[in-house]
């Protein structure tokens, strides 16, 4: 369905590029939910914008790698160019529902605009379709909300509108960039449930980006962990949470509060991720890794498949041992 291969996004001049996303690869199958998890600044949002063809201009650019949607190369194409080329079935929802809708245009218009492009409808049928989409995202009183302005809706309702706009693109792949981070916890649960249900019902694949391991554990089928612009580990959700192989993933798990952690102080990973452009030849995690060895600092670690469908970017991965 969606295949991303060696995607490299860079800033700075052509002669001395600084890679903020370096050789990211992943596959997304029909109806599958892939979680992309990492600290803020690790390049996960850049990855999603690059995949969607929405990198801000002037700014970062795709220096290498390919994005294939159903086998068709859409790498350097913006969304409208993809629509023209007949590969427009990818959509995205964003982190900030408060600012992601145009404040001076009605909800109905904003949804119908996407309907017109993707369904080639216009006039009343487009509005009908917009209402139908609002029903699909469980918006209370959809017919009324068509003529509402964004400021009249709550945060959760706005995010539902954003999802409706995305669905108007009839996506095979939906990219969700921290869609629930800005919402209250109860609303968060509802929106996650809605996304899960829509993926099942519409057989839609989703790339779900978050820094929240808890959300990933509930929602994703597979998980990729990103660190300093690289994917350091990819595995099925159970394998990853049960037997993390990368030292960084393991560190993240240890930082998660659990029910029996009580008042105990949570552990942290010492140090800071390297700034883009300061990464040397060795492993990007070497400076913070508890099990670092001499070769880690000088040689790039290999990508090893430690078991079926479980990749890790580490020269000395944790042994699986007993499941946690």
């Amino acid at each position: 369905m969606l295949s991303v291969r060696d995607l490299t996004v860079s800033l700075g001049p052509e002669t001395a590029p600084v890679d903020i996303v370096a050789g990211v690869s992943f596959e997304l199958g029909k109806g599958e939910i892939l979680g992309l998890v990492g600290e803020s600044g690790c390049g996960k949002s850049m990855t999603s914008l690059a995949v969607m063809g929405l990198l801000p201009q002037p700014g970062p650019r795709i220096r290498a790698g390919r994005v294939l949607l159903e086998g068709c190369d859409v790498t350097q194409l913006q969304p409208w160019q993809r629509v023209v080329a007949g590969h427009g079935r990818m959509a995205m929802i964003f982190q900030e529902p408060m600012t992601s809708l145009n404040p001076v245009r009605r909800i109905g218009d904003q949804i119908a605009e996407a309907v017109r492009v993707h369904d080639r409808l216009s006039g009343p049928p487009a509005i009908d379709r917009a209402r139908e989409l609002l029903e699909q995202v469980r918006m209370p009183d959809p017919a009324m909300q068509l003529s509402a302005y964004p400021h009249q809706l709550s945060g959760g309702q706005r995010q539902r509108v954003m999802i409706a706009i995305a669905l108007a693109c009839r996506p095979q792949v939906l990219i969700a960039d921290e869609p629930t981070t800005a919402l209250d916890v109860t609303i968060q649960v509802q929106v996650l449930g809605l996304l899960r249900e829509l993926c099942n019902r519409l057989d839609m694949a989703m790339l779900f980006i978050t820094h929240d391991m808890g959300v990933i554990a509930q929602l994703a089928d597979r998980v990729s962990v990103m660190y300093a612009g690289r994917i350091v580990e990819t595995a099925g959700v159970e394998a990853l949470f049960g037997r993390p192989r990368h030292h960084y993933t393991r560190g993240l798990m240890d930082c998660m509060p659990s029910r029996n952690s009580g008042a105990r102080r949570l552990p942290t990973i010492a140090g800071q991720p390297p700034a883009p452009g300061t990464v040397g030849a060795g492993c990007v995690f070497a400076s913070r890794c508890a099990a670092v060895r001499e070769t880690c600092r000088t040689a790039a670690p290999p990508r090893a498949e430690v078991s079926q469908g479980h990749d890790v970017l580490c020269a000395f991965p944790l042994d699986g041992g007993e499941p946690r």
């Binding site: 969607m52 929405l54 801000p56 913006q78 969304p79 409208w80 993809r82 629509v83 427009g88 959509a91 995205m92 964003f94 900030e96 600012t99 992601s100 809708l101 145009n102 404040p103 904003q110 605009e113 996407a114 492009v117 993707h118 954003m162 706009i165 995305a166 108007a168 693109c169």
Partner: peptide
């Protein structure tokens, strides 16, 4: 952000 949303819809520049 809403301009990015508009671009994501696939409407022309």
């Amino acid at each position: 952000d809403y301009v990015r949303t508009a671009r994501a819809k696939g409407i022309r520049p």
